[in-house]
Design a protein around this nucleic acid. Structure first.
Lengths: 145, 145
DNA sequence: ACGCGGAACGAGAATCGTTTTCATTCCCGG
DNA sequence: CCGGGAATGAAAACGATTCTCGTTCCGCGT
């Protein structure tokens, strides 16, 4: 999705929740857009020095509530954030157990659709209503090998 | 796996790392064994009042290091623990976004093996060495619906 | 049996990522 | 141009987890 479209879509999501698309929020979205995978608060602050920590935390919470951003927990000590899937593309994560970095990857369509139906079936069998799934690979990234 | 076998296997794992299978550690393993899914420290303490918080934290760390226990982060504020997969069976998690509870579920063998090869391929394409994967469904459990 | 030495324990203090507070600044609607 | 609620920033508070430290336990050699 083009940058302009992302901004427009985020603006719409915020408006729908009676929230403003302020400069700070826009800067956060811009940082997330230019980072090939989920990143930490620290990384966001480092990427744009004009942001203040508390506002970034607060704004990420709001952006998550309106559905513009997704919160990712990997197992290391830091929560990471990425743009919501409908603003990017469906993908999964390679998580390096060594350095903690997260990079995106995709599966081919036929695998994905197979997964979907398997999930649907499994959820149903457990009286569970599934709204999303998470699929990550853990291991060692090229850098750390 | 039968309870006796689990204990034996855990004992072996600990011994291999020059660690003792103390009463406290055994109690933790017992609690994990009798709980159809990953549970929090608080739940462990509630399930066995004779355990002390700091020791449970410490022992779970050790049990994880020797490969007897796996740490699970779901997105809510609590880390959960379960017996390692080779002490139970391969499975995935249904995570209730509402109450936070986690329950196990399985996919059929053909789906699993398809996934494995898809993962292998994706990891390789990214210069990544995959050692494990995580596959969870988020949604609403029967109770919270 | 006994005693030694290191492992494990328990209670509380410390840590640190995250959340909240509160006074100030900004921005929209009238 | 003003008033009032929203957003901000700095700093304090919070809370799950980790660390500290004195005590207790356990395996082993004598």
């Amino acid at each position: 999705m083009a940058e302009a479209d992302v901004n427009e879509e985020v603006a719409a999501l915020l408006r729908r929740a009676d929230q403003r698309y302020t400069t700070g929020r826009r800067r956060v979205v811009d940082v997330l857009e230019n980072s090939g995978g989920p990143i930490t608060i620290t990384q966001i602050l480092a990427a744009d020095g004009s942001l203040s920590q508390s506002s970034v935390y607060r704004n990420l919470t709001i952006l998550e509530e309106v559905g513009a951003v997704t919160r990712i927990v990997t197992g290391d000590d830091f929560t990471r954030y990425e743009l919501a899937e409908h603003l990017t593309e469906h993908h999964h994560h390679l998580i390096c157990s060594d350095c903690g970095e997260v990079t995106d990857f995709s599966l081919d369509d036929s695998t994905e659709s197979m997964l979907d139906s398997a999930f649907h079936q499994a959820a149903q069998a457990n009286g569970f209503t599934a709204t999303a799934h998470r699929l990550d690979l853990f291991g060692t990234c090229g850098n750390c090998a």
